[in-house]
Design a protein around this nucleic acid. Structure first.
Length: 418
DNA sequence: TCTGGGGTCCTAGGACCC
DNA sequence: TCTGGGGTCCTAGGACCC
């Protein structure tokens, strides 16, 4: 009974009109806009340091350079490739401004990543004539204000709007109307859907499923046996069905974890150096948690070894919620102490989860209050003068003023959560 | 002198309690 | 004394997205 009525409610859901907007070669475009000398040239934006992957401009892609290549690979394919060290502040700023433009057309804007957003314009159509009109207005404004092109998909739901925006790049505009859906899906390769990655594709291929048409017609029980509760969802995806709402800024679920990881400039096996790096990561995690006003009980330590392929993660759950850097550091150290390292370390990561929102209440004990005040004072100074302006003494001799040179640490254009 | 960093969701097994 | 089963919390690991 109840299920039936839920089902009816869902299928009665009125038709929606969703836009998916994807900035073309976002990082490279922002850099080319900031420096006219880079315009029209093959460029690659990197995150600083030698062990990094690149994102590319369209000129670079035309010469065979692919996003995700290592720097040396890109240089080999295209010797005239210009390497630009990225500046995350430019991207978050631009992304925020672009999302402000979106909100002129509907309050229902969901930022999926720093360069992609969904807009539910269902209720704006009376004012702006049509979704195509809105799309053209947005394209023009983004090009005029930021010199960036974007690809826009228009469809009845998020899944299909994203699919549509991928169909024409750069500067595309693609519409999937309700009456087009079955025709479009029939021969579409399953891997083109957002949510079907390499492994899922391989499993489906082994079941002789290659196209969305085949996926949509597949017996649901067969999919459920193989994929669990994801099975039913997969069948719907094959049919182009997606009921997920556009979740506007401020109405997202609370953030569930806060973490940082970093590949080291060189593999290290010196325990003191490993601890120093762990402290630095703990400080990055702690300061962000304090900024979001959350604290967490579970600390997760992740280590990738020099050979790249072997790694492990261990977590520990504390009695109390914490967000002070040295408490996070102590927990990470206690995990490290349980392990015998097998190789030099390539990457270290620290994540805080099991989060709760901080109450306004101050800690009960005097010395805890003091620690909190010190942390907050440090956070404030760092907010004003840049990350790591003030930090723990043992971090200082470092060559690594990490953080400032990495590709967007906070990719949500407006920061996270409520 | 290969191969970044930020997340989310799901599964499975063990411990423990009722 | 034996047995079953549900629920919660925890850890570990995998898949996926940008």
């Amino acid at each position: 009974m109840l299920l039936t009525s839920i089902f009816n409610t869902l299928s009665d859901m009125p038709a929606r009109t969703i836009l998916h907007i994807d900035m073309n070669a976002f990082f490279a475009s922002v850099e080319q806009q900031a420096d006219p000398a880079l315009r029209g040239k093959p460029i690659a934006v990197v995150g600083g340091g030698g062990r990094t992957v690149i994102t590319t401009s369209y000129e670079a892609r035309a010469k065979g350079v692919k996003t995700g290549m290592a720097i040396w690979e890109g240089k080999r394919v295209c010797p005239e490739l210009i390497i630009v060290v990225g500046d995350s502040r430019k991207y978050t700023y631009t992304s925020g401004k672009i999302n402000e433009i979106f909100r002129d057309y509907t309050p229902e804007v969901e930022a999926f990543s720093i360069d992609e957003s969904w807009l539910d314009v269902t209720h704006s159509l009376g004012i702006f004539d049509s979704a195509v009109t809105i799309a053209h207005l947005i394209k023009t404004r983004i090009r005029h204000s930021f010199g960036i092109t974007c690809s826009i998909g228009i469809a009845p739901n998020k899944l299909l709007a994203k699919l549509a925006s991928d169909m024409q790049k750069p500067d595309g505009l693609t519409i999937i109307a309700p009456e087009d859906i079955s025709r479009v899906m029939e021969r579409l390769p399953i891997k083109d859907l957002c949510g079907i990655g390499k492994k899922t594709q391989r499993h489906l291929n082994m079941m002789s499923i290659y196209t969305c048409g085949e996926l949509g017609r597949c017996d649901e029980a067969r999919l459920t046996r193989k994929f669990g509760i994801v099975g039913a969802r997969l069948k719907e995806m094959g049919q182009g069905i997606d009921r997920s709402p556009v979740v506007p800024f401020g109405e997202e679920d609370e953030v569930k974890s806060v973490g940082h990881s970093r590949t080291l400039e060189q593999d290290i096996d010196n325990p003191a150096e490993i601890r120093r790096f762990l402290l630095q990561l703990s400080e990055m995690v702690g300061s962000r948690a304090r900024r979001y006003n959350v604290s967490g009980r579970t600390i997760h330590l992740y280590v990738r070894y020099a050979d790249f392929f072997s790694s492990w993660g261990k977590q520990t759950t504390l009695k109390n919620h914490v967000n002070l850097s040295d408490e996070i550091y102590k927990a990470a150290l206690s995990i490290l102490a349980t392990v015998e390292l097998e190789q030099p370390v390539r990457l270290l990561g620290v994540t805080l989860s099991n989060l709760k929102h901080q109450t306004e209440q101050l800690p009960l004990f005097e010395d805890e209050r003091k620690k909190l005040f010190v942390a907050q004072a440090m956070d404030k100074i760092n907010d004003r003068f840049g990350r790591m302006a003030v930090t723990f003494g043992s971090l200082l001799p470092g060559k690594e003023s990490a953080g400032s040179r990495v590709i967007p640490p906070s990719w949500r254009p407006d920061g996270i959560g409520n």
